[in-house]
Amino acid sequence: MGIATGSEGLITVLGYGSLLSQRSALETVPSLTGFRRVRLPGYRRIFNKVGVVFFSRHGADAASLEIASCSTQAMAGCEIICSAFEVPEADFSALYEREHRYRWVEVVALDEAGMPVQGRICTSSTDMDYRLNKCVTHAEYYRRVGQYYSGPLWRDDILPFPRYLAFCLEAAASQGQAVLDNFMDSSYLADGCTSIRQYLGSLEPPLQWQGSRGGYSYRAR
């Protein structure tokens, strides 16, 4: 597979969750350039990865099902709106580290003029692949995951971590109503069947847009 690297040593990255927010992307890679919107046919979002950072930094409860962060999954007939931006090769390692538990793949998106944009995106992996190819040793896995969480990372029974979901919705909303609608309708729970729009409507109390207060409300943990 080729590498999405430009002639000037830039790597094109596609963001689909928190990286829809330019502010969030800049926190990890301050040197990024060319932040813009693209469409990626043949993919959907899915909240099927345990967010280890929710345990290490945000007090998540391992007994709760509300521990999922967002990934992507190839799916015919689906399309997600993403951010795209360029990262210097020398700085890509910071983003790679931030998204260490994902598998990176090369995809071809479409810009607003319908022209192809070749870039890298994080997508779903498996526990076995992560242990064998990203961590290698038990000590490395314990340092990155085991000291915070002992169960499987990729699951079909978990729900979004409320604070993280609220942030993703805010990031999508910052790009306009069309991006927010796309996020809600092309993103699914780990069960692969329930859209985020359906999930939001089922919550008690519902997760709601609080525009006058600058974002989405979420249930405090």
Score class of each variant (00 low, 15 high):
V87K: 01
Y164P: 08
E112V: 15
G114S: 03
R131H: 10
C122S: 04
E97P: 00
P88R: 00
R98I: 04
I158K: 00
M128W: 10
D111M: 03
Y130L: 15
D127V: 02
V108R: 11
Y164T: 13
F85V: 01
M75T: 14
C82M: 11
T137E: 06
P152E: 02
S69L: 10
V107E: 05
M128Y: 12
G77M: 04
A68D: 00
G59M: 06
G77A: 01
E97Q: 12
R101Q: 11
R98P: 03
V108L: 10
S83R: 07
A76F: 08
K134N: 09
V108S: 11
G146A: 04
D91L: 01
I81K: 15
D127W: 08
C70Y: 04
T126M: 03
Q147W: 00
E86F: 00
A113T: 14
D156I: 02
I67V: 13
L65Y: 11
I81L: 15
A63K: 14
C122P: 00
G119Q: 06
Y141Q: 12
S150H: 08
R155T: 06
T126A: 05
R120T: 10
G146L: 02
V117L: 06
P152Q: 02
Y149D: 02
G77F: 06
W154T: 00
R120C: 10
E97A: 14
E106D: 13
I80W: 07
L95S: 00
C122L: 05
D111R: 04
S93N: 13
L95Q: 06
G146W: 02
G114N: 03
T137Q: 06
M115I: 08
Y149I: 05
E97G: 04
V108W: 06
S56I: 08
H100I: 15
G77S: 03
Q147F: 01
Y96L: 14
P162N: 06
F161Y: 14
M128N: 12
H100K: 14
V107W: 01
D61N: 15
V117S: 07
F161H: 09
R143M: 08
E86G: 14
C78D: 15
D61K: 12
E99S: 02
H100N: 12
I67K: 05
T126G: 06
M115N: 15
S124K: 03
A60R: 02
C82P: 07
W104C: 04
R101M: 12
C135F: 09
A94M: 10
R143S: 11
S150N: 06
P160S: 00
C70A: 14
L65A: 14
E99G: 02
D127A: 08
R101K: 13
N133C: 14
C122Y: 01
A63W: 06
Q147M: 10
A84T: 09
V108P: 00
D111W: 03
Y130K: 07
T126Y: 04
E66K: 13
F92E: 11
C82T: 06
H138M: 11
S64R: 07
R155C: 01
M128I: 13
R57Q: 15
Y141S: 12
C122K: 00
W154I: 02
D111L: 03
A139T: 11
W104G: 07
V145Y: 01
V136T: 13
E66M: 05
D129E: 14
G114M: 03
Q73Y: 11
E106H: 10
S69W: 04
D61P: 11
E97H: 09
F54T: 11
D127R: 04
Q73E: 13
A84F: 07
S64F: 09
Q73S: 09
F55Q: 09
A62T: 08
Q118P: 03
R143N: 12
